[in-house]
Design a protein around this nucleic acid. Sequence first.
DNA 1: AATAGTGCAACAGCAATTGTTACGTATGAT
DNA 2: ATCATACGTAACAATTGCTGTTGCACTATT
Lengths: 142, 142
Amino acid sequence: MKRNSRLSLALHTLSHMAGDPDRVRTSADIADHAGTNPVVVRRVLGKLRQAGLLSSEKGHSGGWRLAKPAKDITLADVYLALDERFVSGASDDAGPPQCSVEAGLQTRVAEVLQEIEESLVKRLSETSITDVHPSSCSYCDN
Amino acid sequence: MKRNSRLSLALHTLSHMAGDPDRVRTSADIADHAGTNPVVVRRVLGKLRQAGLLSSEKGHSGGWRLAKPAKDITLADVYLALDERFVSGASDDAGPPQCSVEAGLQTRVAEVLQEIEESLVKRLSETSITDVHPSSCSYCDN
DNA sequence: AATAGTGCAACAGCAATTGTTACGTATGAT
DNA sequence: ATCATACGTAACAATTGCTGTTGCACTATT
């Protein structure tokens, strides 16, 4: 796995689930397929569970499945569930800036970034998991 | 300085320059004011120079200044000059994916991200450096 | 010549993410 | 009941990207 791969892992897994919703998958299966570690999978999918996109069950014959129809899960849901923000404030200074130019800047730039973040989420909410699922999918034929 | 501070540093510096365009600033001056290192400043401003936003001169009484009027420099210019991509493909896998679902996903998701990237740049291009410069700026009174 | 700058490369330090191990807990199978 | 299986979580190692720092070459002004 590479950097910032949480979104990739989440989408990949959701897409597979969309193609075969009844199958329950263990984190080991998923990790195997995605080339990563079960713990990493549980970390990422745990966020999706908190957001109500997935459900998990412990114990024998437990595992992960979609918590609602794939068509009702949008890219925005996934994006927000992972607490990822492409457009971050980029200013984590300790306390208020000493420089008046910097202070004014932060306010103005934050406004623009906020706008952009909103339009990004809006756009993401227009695409569902089924929309990004390949129409010709060899896994769906199983 | 904190993480992903290149954009902050660039905007901060450009904003100062917009307020007093004739003044030539050394990377040491700028670093001092921004609380960072001259080499870091040259790294970041070097990108802006490559993009034609700034010019630099070597030797005695050298330094940095705007290469064109501040009102003609937009946030998009800065964003693009720094090679920053808020919306990154998030897929740096080695070679083509083995999994057909993954392959289809990458294509579709890339399309959406591309759209978003374009609208982001479009929005950024509507705001110039002078727009984010504070109207009441103590430095402009010098 | 001396001085004051940029340009660049190499390396150290730091922070965030990912990978891994270990252990607790819950649940179904036997 | 007991066992096997799978999630949940904490702790730590490994990796990676960015920032900070030092050093030196090169250039232009004085």
